[in-house]
Nucleic acid binder design. Structure first.
Lengths: 350, 350
DNA sequence: TTGTAAGCGTTATCAG
DNA sequence: CTGATAACGCTTACAA
């Protein structure tokens, strides 16, 4: 593999001149430049960006750590960061954090040892204080979930308001027994959504029984179990607010007639029958903003930025919310609005 | 930021000794080791892996380049590679190649300049000959699509046989007018699937009219257009073989009664109504094999490996294939088998 | 316009 | 068991 010195020797110049050619330094005689460029081609010279990074200290890599790259929500974030990075000629180092909170630190520190220019993190653990020392040296930006035990930039969504709105939407359809489906309250987003759900019930003058709340519903088996419980209550649930797409997708095969609103849009949510009413998030925007913040911090080390940015979420009304089956209610309640043209408003099989 | 030298000075040893401690070299006196380790903690020493990589030439990074990280198929490949890499304490550099074939080379070369230990590529362009020089220096493994203009390891799927089987499945249900939906024949996988489709029709004694083949059907608008064309033919199509999940997902909202088999399983394919019959691929296995091949090549530089590995795909029969609507046929043809328990075998709305 | 010298943080070599 | 010294390939000063 030809190095810069090889090219220099072949072109009869010093390696500094080759470096100048490489970096488009104007202070190079055109003929010298031509000669060097010819030699670079001839020797198939490719700069070793590792050496450049090492020497200059500037790595031009943005690290991205998300819980799971296969989740379309996080994949969208990653792609958005990638897109922004690419426009600046930077690359992206992606890693999945997985499910185990205890591994988060190891994974992130391994990433940080590679001296990235900055990192974007959607954390899974309950404590990011170990990043404090690192945050002095490079921008660390959180997405989807705010940092815990650390002050850092974050771009999140209004989970509370979204859950409140979603729950209220069900209340407005006449439901007074609304279940909550989630993974675990230790995830801050789920906690906030649960809070929003509870507040909505309270605002509607409904009781928020603990028996309506089903956690750990992220698999088909557990979702089935949760649904069975909800429907078997003395006063059964007639609707469900699912706090994330994973729970919803686990719930879907169960084909039970129950109204549902879910937090987070996902592919095919509008194609299902009935199509799903969702609180739509904008993961790409989250990723875009986070990446730009990294670049802004890099470009303006002394500028002050707003630490926490909370994006709104909005209701996308489709077909999955209807009035409860009680005949009295059914007569009086208006049918749900549907944005999908092909709907017949009849089937209700989620 | 403390460097190795700082630690060495503080511990009263040379940096080489610190290096030995770091690398668990047994030839270090326990007391020395203890002193060094204490200093590392005290100074919050973190090794600069960039320097290590630079010096040693071994980067412990596996690069992964896929068309689109948001596509669950490619995301699964990435996650599998990540998983294998992690077990070896290596990290993963991920990049999306996007849609533009002319950018592939730039993106890959940028990745290669970072001196990864090896790379896994699902290419989008029709020529990877520019990688020949690189493949001398590091293992390059192709997934999903074989390299063109280059001899290199590849793990692909039996696109021909899969398409043949899928098409035959429709033929066996009594269809004699079967449309083909795809993106573009320039993608080798699509070309192979088209070939399999054509061969199946031929084997069944059916004519493979060009008017049955719709390319560029990857968006909802174009899929709608394609479907309209297929249904408007003098002898209309009664079934469709969709050559990839993207086309299928574009087709789904159209809610037209038509039998369908699609190449590649995807989330919720079994939850749709009717649930989709698919030729299932195993992207995770593809990624796993590719990553292991990288490691194997690294560990055994002189060993010879089988260049091309083609994985089988298998039919997952669900509800989306039925006999054509012709009353005569309907009476005689058997109803399709369904693997999904909730099916009623009636609705046919894809 | 071009070159020289030094060094980024680590590991390899070889000597003690 | 430990250390001095030289490298890895490039960029940053500073000269010329």
């Amino acid at each position: 593999m030809a190095t810069m010195r090889d090219v220099a020797a072949a072109a009869g110049v010093s390696s500094k001149t080759v470096s100048r050619v490489l970096n488009s330094d104007p202070h190079v005689h055109p003929s010298t430049r031509a000669r060097v460029e010819a030699m670079m081609r001839e020797l198939d010279y490719v700069p070793n960006s590792l050496a450049t990074t090492f020497r200059s200290g500037r790595s031009s890599v943005i690290g991205v750590a998300v819980p799971d790259i296969v989740d379309p929500f996080f994949a969208s974030i990653v792609r958005a960061v990638e897109h922004v990075a690419l426009a600046r000629d930077m690359s992206t180092l992606v890693t999945s954090l997985g499910e185990d909170p205890t591994r988060e630190r190891l994974i992130l520190e391994s990433m940080l040892r590679g001296q990235p220019s900055g990192i974007v993190v959607a954390p899974i653990s309950g404590d990011q204080s170990f990043l404090a020392a690192w945050s002095l040296r490079l921008p660390i930006v959180f997405v989807d979930r705010p940092p815990l035990g650390l002050s850092a930039d974050s771009f999140t969504q209004d989970n509370f308001a979204g859950a409140f709105t979603a729950t209220m939407h069900l209340v407005e359809h006449g439901h007074d027994r609304i279940g909550f489906l989630g993974d675990t309250v230790t995830v801050p987003t789920t906690a906030a959504r649960l809070h929003g759900y509870r507040s909505a019930l309270q605002a509607a003058g409904l009781s928020a029984d603990d028996e309506l709340i089903a956690m750990g519903a992220g698999t088909r088996a557990s979702a089935a179990c949760a649904l069975q419980t909800l429907r078997g209550l003395a006063r059964p649930a007639t609707a469900v607010f699912s706090s994330n797409a994973r729970c919803t997708m686990a719930l879907l095969p169960l084909a039970d007639p129950m109204s549902i609103v879910t937090f987070g849009d996902f592919p095919l949510a509008d194609v299902l029958r009935p199509s799903l009413t969702v609180m739509a998030q904008d993961p790409a925007e989250l990723g875009r903003l986070a990446a730009h913040r990294i670049l802004d911090r890099l470009d303006h080390p002394n500028r002050r930025f707003r630490r926490s940015t909370v994006l709104p979420v909005h209701l996308v009304e489709r077909e999955s919310c209807v009035v409860p089956e009680d005949p009295a209610d059914r007569a009086s309640g208006p049918p749900p609005t549907a944005t999908r043209s092909q709907t017949d408003g009849a089937s209700l099989l989620v």
